[in-house]
Design a protein around this nucleic acid. Structure first.
Lengths: 187, 187
DNA sequence: TCCGCCATCTTGACACTGTCAATATATCTG
DNA sequence: CAGATATATTGACAGTGTCAAGATGGCGGA
């Protein structure tokens, strides 16, 4: 029988190392630099080594996106924890949301924009966890009726704002922080 | 002196043909299939021919995105034209917005998501035209005060919804049409 | 009318990518 | 300790964007 986390083989934990390397490349040099071979180089292995851990490049991307969702989830929780009232928690989550997107634009775009075929169990789970997190906060703030609709509306607003900001589609004269406050206070 | 649109040379209008070919490839086979060489093949020229019209691949992408903005602008105008009242016009634009994004997801993602360096004059112009179009509609519907903020908020909401829908990040159980109506009626 | 120039296109090459097949190596199991 | 198996390497292939050099054809000036 195989141990769940294949601890010590040739490399040690190449699978994890590749994900970490990919994440670092993504953060430092952007999506264009994120290639299988670059990850392999960074992990100190040969260019075909990743094949045995990720059947295709998309699978590695999906796993990187999943780690992004985990950090994202944590960031939103941290943001909400600073407030007491449910409505304030929700608004704080909105702030943390946009802050995360701006701090990690490439990861955020991979998480939401990529053609990541949600085959990955890990990715699927991380995504629905984030969704449940938002829905819970909305329900806590506004009650259970029309919760799905409110959640979709809230997510659309904040996601759209984050995307426009990241891709420099907002007017340069706009005070983004103030705009976000105003928007999220009208939820 | 050279004519503004270089009419008839070897190919005829390779520049335009490449943009059109790229657009068709994007619509039919998605972003992954959109390569310089594929455009060249479709236009019936050699793989290096595009170099003389687009210094780099990103320049061709930018031009394709610009044509997308033009169609987008037209679609929003058509949608607004169906209504009389300013508020109804704005809501109709929202419908047309999402309809366009769903009908042309790859083009829409290229327009908003890509790393298209806004070096292209054409692209810059097309983008700001779309922005002005929205701001005008918002001003007409709600008056001039806080127009920028309202426009940003509106765009964020609709853009976010469109992106989430395109990338299949919305709950499968959601009635998207109803959600959009509700959201845009609360603008 | 003819000639030269220059924009345009082709050909060929280079480094890079993802993926596959064959081979080598280390770890685990019996 | 030896065979089996998971892991990694090497080498190859087709495809990509980009560059450099050569071929081709239309345009303007004589």
């Amino acid at each position: 029988m195989k141990k769940k986390p294949p601890k010590n083989y040739h490399h040690g934990d190449l699978r994890g190392a590749l994900i970490k390397a990919g994440r670092e490349i993504l953060e430092k040099d952007g999506a264009a630099a994120l290639t299988l071979r670059a990850c392999a180089r960074k992990a100190g292995v040969s260019h075909a080594a990743p094949q045995h851990h990720f059947p295709t490049a998309a699978d590695l991307l999906a796993e990187i996106a999943a780690t992004g969702y985990e950090d994202f989830h944590q960031a939103l929780d941290d943001g909400a924890a600073k407030e007491e009232a449910a409505a304030a928690k929700l608004q704080a989550m909105g702030r943390s949301y946009v802050t995360f997107a701006k701090a990690h634009p490439a990861v955020y775009k991979l998480m939401f924009g990529a053609e990541t075929p949600p085959k990955s169990e890990h990715l699927q789970h991380a995504m629905s966890a984030a969704w449940n997190q938002l829905t819970s906060a909305v329900t806590a703030a506004y009650g259970p009726d029309e919760a799905q609709l409110r959640a979709v509306s809230t997510w659309s607003l904040v996601h759209g704002f984050a995307m426009l900001a990241i891709n420099h589609r907002l007017p340069p004269t706009l005070d983004q922080a103030r705009a976000l406050e105003t928007m999220t206070s009208r939820l």
